[in-house]
Design a binder for these strands. Sequence first.
DNA 1: ACGCATGTTTGCTCTGGATCAAGAAGAAAC
DNA 2: GTTTCTTCTTGATCCAGAGCAAACATGCGT
Lengths: 250, 250
Amino acid sequence: MHPLDATRALMEGLGSESSICMKCGSRSVGLCAPLDAAALDDMSGESERLAFDQRDAIFRQGDAARHVYTLTEGMARLTRVLPDGRQAVIGFRFAGDILGFTPEAEHAFGAEMLTRGTVCRLDRRRLEQMFRRYPVMERRFLDLCVKELSASQDHILALGRFSAEERVAAFLVSLAEAQERRGHVGPVFDLPTTRADIGEFLGLTLETVSRAVSSFRKRGWIRLHGHSGIELSDRNALACLAAGEGADAA
Amino acid sequence: MHPLDATRALMEGLGSESSICMKCGSRSVGLCAPLDAAALDDMSGESERLAFDQRDAIFRQGDAARHVYTLTEGMARLTRVLPDGRQAVIGFRFAGDILGFTPEAEHAFGAEMLTRGTVCRLDRRRLEQMFRRYPVMERRFLDLCVKELSASQDHILALGRFSAEERVAAFLVSLAEAQERRGHVGPVFDLPTTRADIGEFLGLTLETVSRAVSSFRKRGWIRLHGHSGIELSDRNALACLAAGEGADAA
DNA sequence: ACGCATGTTTGCTCTGGATCAAGAAGAAAC
DNA sequence: GTTTCTTCTTGATCCAGAGCAAACATGCGT
């Protein structure tokens, strides 16, 4: 399961040279990966690069959807506000992920940075033009959407049928995989989300998330390094719990 | 919210003459709607029409994804089996909906008929050819995917933050809307799903679904007609509850 | 019409996670 | 360094919904 990492599949289809979008300016964005040199050249003039601080909103729910964004550095949170004022986190996004693409006139959710970072912004009408000029790019979007849909369905399963600890374990493993896929090495990962964010994503309260994390810590499965570092010492145990295989080591 | 009705948006964009796919043989499928006469002609030879009985599987999780299906009559259920054997219903589909489109080699979920019905089957490689010949069709798929993604996110919100009664109310309203969008008139709707199906879709047990339904019945919001007929007598009350506006009529 | 299978309702108990409350630990500001 | 703010942890209680069990419908096959 990879509920928070929609581009996993996008990456898989690519050679390693374009595996992560570390240099949007040098035109190796995930989105642009299938384009040849000429097309990339065409594309390059169309996009702007923007820097954001922690907590800055990239776009807000209800904003006119005039742009499409590629997150080039950092981590972001996607949030949706319900009519009654409750807020929910519907996902997290990392470097290389595409944000805010929709055929609708308005963004159905907002995106906020969890860390400082940079974003590559493209005018939507220009993107549509690019689609017409380079159909392979539209195909890429379609594949990505189907993958993301599949990830959403995994998340739906998790919310509907998994216990609190199973969900938190799945989240941690998923987070680690997402960071590794983007070149992270070593057992200590960034955890730039608050307990409240995780809770709102997993359909739990922040206290329940905290209790699950404490429980993992007491079992020796994880170690915390300050407020934003986490070490998965027994990743296998977490993965087993996440897969619903509570106790099968006899 | 319309968690179980992914083609809602597909329909909205169309003139009424092609609003529902009642005659796949006569080439008015939702999928084919944006095609002109020549393209439709091209398409018609490529598809097969199949009839299914209640409970028949259209395809199973893990099957090679060699075909794409359009449900032309009846209602189907999409299910996914978890590694530990638990089953979850991830959605319902109606006439006009597309089933089983994926860039993967295997179907990630299974589809079973809840009623008798018919399905229009298209070879996936032929569909890819059609995409190349008629790019507008690929665009249609993309739009549909984005819409479906948005519906999934709604469902994620519902699972994460709504109470049992709110979820059941939302489901009933959504079901009614889906049937009306397909030409249904009158206050009595088909409810071909069992309580267990609804529960597995909403992340609840069948008993909890039954209790919610009974509670609505006692409040006079719905009436049951046999096991598969339901009348929404006070649809507004259900809709308010579904929207999280528990009590705001002062 | 009868019997059987499948699905539904309802009652009861129990538990996982929500909720409320208080403190502890980091991080940032001065 | 100290203060202050935010986030995290932990404890205690409560309740929505799960789980179990026992009738109760509905509809199908014969």
